[in-house]
């Protein structure tokens, strides 16, 4: 199980949790399993054709998955996945 950190704007969609445990051996699998458990998250992260929105960053531990193998990046037990949309507040 990897630990997925949910940003403030998505917390309502996962029942207020700040972190959720999600199974999966790649980033894509983890995201799919996250959507199964919390369908409301899907529309906020993906476009209708199943592509991750460009304004959503996904980090595996402290590295951007764009710099790794994108959605095919392998995920190990106890890895931390962070979903990071930009915030504008000041």
């Amino acid at each position: 199980m990897s630990l997925v950190r949910i940003p403030p704007v998505l917390r309502q969609a996962v029942g207020g949790e700040r972190e959720v445990e999600v199974p999966g051996s790649t980033v894509a699998e983890v995201l799919d399993n996250l959507y199964d458990a919390h369908p409301a998250v899907k529309a906020q992260l993906q476009s209708e054709d199943g592509e991750l929105h460009r304004f959503v960053n996904v980090y595996l531990n402290d590295e951007d998955v764009r710099m790794l193998s994108w959605l095919d990046t392998p995920v190990s037990d106890r890895d931390r996945i962070l979903i990071l949309p930009a915030m504008a507040g000041g």
């Binding site: 906020q44 304004f55 507040g89």
Partner: peptide, 19 residues
């Protein structure tokens, strides 16, 4: 870091969401 801005509903301001 953020190539594109999120749509307004994904990016609430502090006035709406609090800080």
């Amino acid at each position: 870091l953020f190539p594109e801005p999120p749509p307004p509903d994904m990016a609430p301001a502090c006035g709406e969401a609090g800080v």
